[in-house]
């Protein structure tokens, strides 16, 4: 009897993390331009840390609105790495956007001075993040500019950000892009090499590293999140794909525990038409 060749199919439930850089940039720059103009504004303001996320937001903002309409604020703390500031400056120079430097050490120290007892480094990190938010929203009012967000999907899902701090913005072009996708678009737009190559860090204390703190690499967690969240695969399928049970459990727990950071505060329903329950208008309501 003839031996027939066997063709084995393999099902891949997720198309992977590859994005089309040109179409994606087009969609995101259109998004920024549309949302900014819809609210009667022309400008954006953003905090530039020297890291990859804020660099990409700045590049997208400049492409969408023109460099003259992007106001970057560099907000180092005393302990911030000098490299971060230098990298932020590279973005400013590459794009020709407006920039100012606001040293936040005295704000943070002033707060610490009126706070009783010891403040650990996590709390201090949150205070820094919220001081930066305060500066940005003040500049937003001063320049009639919207605050451009810089939180990516990986961070948002893991809750790796400060509520009312770096998570606060008016519009966020990066919120549905995993870190790996932020990297692809950044490379495509010509974000400086030193920013693309360095390990991601919140830079809230010396030698801080996202990947050390999270306990896994962005590449790994991006792949896992894309499977669990986007492709809705089960824990069992994730195990089959070689992810460790510890990692799956830790990631699942981080996503669950940080749900509050992705929502507005809970409002107790006390009327017949409560905000967000039965008073449902889009953000772009009549704009």
């Amino acid at each position: 009897m003839t031996r027939y060749p066997i063709h084995k199919g393999e099902h891949n439930p997720t198309p992977g993390l590859k994005v089309d850089p040109e179409w994606s940039v087009r969609m995101l720059t259109d998004f920024i331009a549309r949302e900014v103009r819809r609210t009667g504004h022309h400008k954006v303001v953003l905090g530039l840390s020297g890291g990859l996320d804020s660099a990409l937001s700045a590049f997208l903002g400049a492409k969408a609105l023109g460099p003259e309409s992007v106001h970057a604020v560099l907000m180092p703390y005393r302990s911030s790495s000098a490299d971060s500031l230098a990298d932020a400056q590279k973005v400013v120079d590459a794009l020709g956007i407006h920039a100012e430097t606001v040293e936040i050490s005295s704000m943070v120290d002033g707060f610490v001075g009126v706070t009783s007892g010891e403040i650990d480094r996590n709390r201090l990190g949150n205070v820094m993040s919220r001081c930066r938010m305060t500066v940005l929203f003040d500049r937003s009012a001063a320049h009639r500019a919207l605050v451009l967000g810089t939180s990516n999907k990986t961070e948002l899902l893991l809750g790796y950000g400060t509520l009312n701090g770096d998570l606060a913005s008016a519009i966020n072009p990066l919120g549905d892009l995993y870190k790996a996708q932020v990297r692809q678009l950044s490379a495509h737009l010509g974000v400086p090499r030193s920013i693309l190559d360095k390990p991601p860090s919140a830079d809230l204390w010396p030698d801080q590293s996202d990947e050390k703190e999270l306990g896994f690499s962005y590449d790994e967690v991006d792949r896992l999140l894309a499977l669990l969240i986007d492709a809705r695969i089960s824990r069992a399928s994730a195990l089959e794909r070689g992810f460790s049970p510890e990692m799956i459990d830790r990631v699942t727990k981080l996503v669950l525990r940080s749900q509050f950071k992705r929502r507005l505060p809970v409002i107790a329903k006390m009327s017949t038409r409560s905000i967000n329950w039965d008073f449902r208008y889009p953000r772009d309501w009549k704009s």
Binding site: K18, D20, S24, M27
Partner: peptide
């Protein structure tokens, strides 16, 4: 609505 852009397509 779209769901982003994969290589070569919206």
């Amino acid at each position: 609505p779209t769901r982003g852009a994969r290589p070569g397509e919206v």
